[in-house]
């Protein structure tokens, strides 16, 4: 595991802070001096997982780089809700250009910093799954291939949410979106399509790839810290539930992310130079139904006649993740 597991029987290190822990062992988010890079007043929906994930990640990156950080943002929810002209929620240097070119712009910013001799100023590019897996994929792959010194963070909420919940190549099978309606013989998004971007990034052989969720803050912060210790192209894929698009209660954002991990639906691991080096084990294995049922985008699977065959296929995908990433083994 990427971070020190401190054994506290009262609360483990699962909580954000813990008054019984030494201050240096507490999370960045527990600290009143955290950057709050994405400040209050942003227009994300109630319970937005992406707003939470972005603050977690960028605050951790700010801490890891001694506040020497520039963020490049792709178009998407994160950009739209944080910067309606002329307001901004960002309390860091931040630039937005287009939907598809965040990785290329970040490469340019990194090159500019190098040209100016400001090697200690680091660059993060960030975007949603649409700007990453679909529209910005070419630029991203190029950034990986050239091993440019950028950490690219994808906040994966499985669709184009602010434009009305359309399907992306990160939408999970069977999920209902505006463009994959729950009707016909195989309702929802089709099986066997889409992209697994963490694995594609690993196939580029870049120095560092990691996945995380908003439910495991300490794991997420440790991975950002690790990523900032490395030079070259790095990729982080953070699962951020979307109450609007997924159709779950706004209060359940973290719980849903936790269920994605505990069911094996979303494997949480890190890899260096194409090889998996650690995984966050499942604490208590749960069936995929526990993850799917609270989400309206999967409601069609649980009607009077449950779609048992579809559920079995989704369970098989989770089982494969568990096997492939050894998610049940203690590390």
């Amino acid at each position: 595991m990427a971070f020190e597991q401190v054994k506290f029987y009262q609360t483990g290190t699962f909580t954000v802070g813990n008054r019984l822990l030494e201050p240096e062992l507490r999370s960045v988010q527990a600290d009143t001096t955290r950057t709050n890079s994405l400040n209050s007043g942003h227009r994300a929906c109630q319970g937005c997982g992406e707003a939470l994930g972005a603050r977690y990640a960028i605050d951790a990156a700010m801490e890891a780089t001694d506040n020497q950080l520039i963020a490049v943002n792709a178009t998407g929810c994160l950009e739209v809700f944080s910067t309606p002209y002329p307001e901004t929620s960002w309390q860091i240097p931040w630039i937005h250009s287009l939907f598809g070119n965040a990785a290329a712009v970040a490469t340019g910013v990194a090159a500019a910093m190098r040209a100016k001799g400001r090697e200690t100023t680091r660059v993060v590019a960030q975007g949603g799954d649409g700007g990453t897996t679909d529209i910005g994929f070419g630029c991203l792959s190029g950034m990986f291939e050239r091993n440019d010194d950028v950490l690219y963070i994808c906040y994966d909420n499985g669709g184009y949410m602010n434009t009305g919940v359309q399907r992306s190549s990160a939408t999970p099978p069977a999920a209902r979106t505006a463009t994959t309606p729950a009707m016909g013989p195989e309702p929802g998004n089709v099986f066997g399509q889409g992209k697994n971007l963490p694995e594609i990034a690993m196939a580029h052989g870049i120095p560092y790839v990691a996945t995380a969720t908003v439910a495991d803050l300490r794991d997420l912060e440790a991975k950002v810290r690790r990523a900032m210790q490395i030079r070259g192209a790095r990729y982080m894929h953070i699962l951020v539930p979307c109450p609007l698009g997924w159709g779950h209660a706004s209060a359940d954002t973290i719980r849903i992310a936790r269920l994605a991990k505990e069911t094996g639906t979303f494997p949480v691991f890190e890899a260096e130079c194409g090889e998996v080096t650690s995984r966050l084990p499942i604490r208590k294995r749960l069936p995929v139904e526990d993850y799917l049922k609270p989400q309206k985008r999967f409601a069609h699977l649980f009607g009077p006649e449950p779609a048992t065959a579809t559920l079995a296929r989704l369970q098989a995908l989770a089982d494969r993740n568990i096997r492939k990433y050894a998610l049940l083994e203690e590390t």
């Binding site: 009262q10 909580t15 954000v16 802070g17």
Partner: peptide, 27 residues
């Protein structure tokens, strides 16, 4: 100490910072 730390602190804040950390709006 071990035994005392097993207390769940039911219904009474023990300052774990969770609310402070998990708020998407820094509120």
């Amino acid at each position: 100490l071990f035994e005392a730390r097993r207390c769940l602190s039911c219904g009474n804040c023990f300052e774990c910072d969770n609310c402070y950390g998990v708020c998407p709006d820094n509120a």
